[in-house]
Every structure is written in C-alpha cells, then in structure tokens.
Amino acid sequence: MSESFTHLDDQGHAHMVDVSAKQVTKRTATARSLVVMQPETLTKLMEGGLPKGDVLATARIAGIQAAKKTSDLIPLCHPLMLTKVSVDINVVDKVSIEILCTCSLKGVTGVEMEALTGVTVAALTLYDMCKAVDKGIVIQNTQLLEKHGGKSGSWSSADVDR
C-alpha cells in the first residue's frame, strides 16, 4: 500500500484537503475509551456520591459537544454538520468504564475524528469530575472501533491483526 500525505501540498505545506468532488454518502464512526479507577471510585460514581454532581450525564454532554467542535480543535479537520452524536457509558467490571462515541452524517468526508474527539473529551470529563477522590484514574485504549461509508467503505478494528 502506497502512503500519500493528503494534507500536504507539492511543496510540503499543510493545507485542508478539497473534498468538493467527493460523493455524498452516509458516514458513521464509533470510537472507544476505557477509564480505569479504584473500585471505591466506581461505586461512588454509580451511586451518585461524588461531590461534582452527575458525572455520567456531564461526560455524555461533554463528549457530544466536543464531537461538534472537532474542527475547532484539530487544525485540518473539516467542519461537519453532524446528524447524530451518541455517547454511551457502560460499566465493564469493578474498576472499568467503557465509553463509546458514535457520530454520523450524510456528507463528503468521514466522522472518525469526531468520534475520537467525543470519546476522548467524555473520558477527560469523567476524570476531571472524579479526580478529587481518585487521582490515579487511567484513560486507556482510545481507538476507532469502526467506520462506514465513503469511498473506502467499511472498516473495523476487529479485522486488524496486532
């Protein structure tokens, strides 16, 4: 597979890629982060016993807001008219929470960066709201799980050998 740096012009200068000739298709992407904490922290979190309030609702809203602002944060990302952003937060075990962010739209460019930005900011918000009781929280395994649509079609991390 040949590598091409689409965000560089002939002189090697950064530029935003012109996507005006691309086909409009439905595009979706889902990203994931795992947040690991002390069992006592997770218990307080799930019981609503943390001093900063409803951590899960705040993290969801932060993730949605971040996905919508991706082009303000990542320099060469196109501003997108997202039609859906969801942030799901699930307890994995006695010390771990999985955060999933799914973004979708009908457009000419993908939404992978929006999903990754959303899940990352949701995880950071969770950390921020829990750090008073657990400074050792670890955010790990942030990754794109899957994407669909566009010229390259579908992709899944399950298909990647690591």
Score class of each variant (00 low, 15 high):
Thr102Ala: 03
His7Ala: 08
Lys147Cys: 07
Lys84His: 15
Cys103Tyr: 05
Asp134Gln: 07
Arg27Asp: 08
Gln23Arg: 14
Gly63Ile: 10
Ser152Ile: 10
Gly153Lys: 15
Asp9Val: 02
Lys147Pro: 01
Leu144Pro: 00
Ala29Cys: 13
Ser2Thr: 10
Leu8Pro: 10
Ala158Thr: 10
Gly150Glu: 06
Ile64Lys: 02
Gly150Pro: 07
Pro39Tyr: 01
Val111Ser: 03
Gly153Thr: 12
Thr120Leu: 12
Ala57Gly: 12
Ser4Trp: 02
Leu100Thr: 09
Ser152Gly: 06
Cys130Pro: 14
Glu40Trp: 01
Lys52Phe: 02
Asn141Ile: 01
Thr41His: 09
Ser2Arg: 12
Thr28Phe: 05
Ile99Met: 08
Met46Glu: 15
Thr6Pro: 00
Ala123Gly: 06
Val119Lys: 06
Gln140Asp: 11
Lys84Thr: 13
Ile61Ser: 12
Thr125Arg: 01
Ala31Asp: 03
Ser2Gly: 05
His15Asp: 08
Met81His: 09
Lys68Trp: 02
Ala57Thr: 14
Gln143Cys: 15
Leu80Asn: 11
Ser104Cys: 09
Lys68Asp: 04
Val119Tyr: 08
Arg60Ile: 05
Gln143Asp: 02
Thr109Leu: 07
Leu116Ser: 00
Ala62Arg: 05
Met16Arg: 15
Leu100Gly: 09
Met129Ser: 04
Thr70Cys: 13
Lys94Leu: 06
Val160His: 11
Met46Phe: 06
Val92Leu: 13
Val87Lys: 04
Ser86Arg: 11
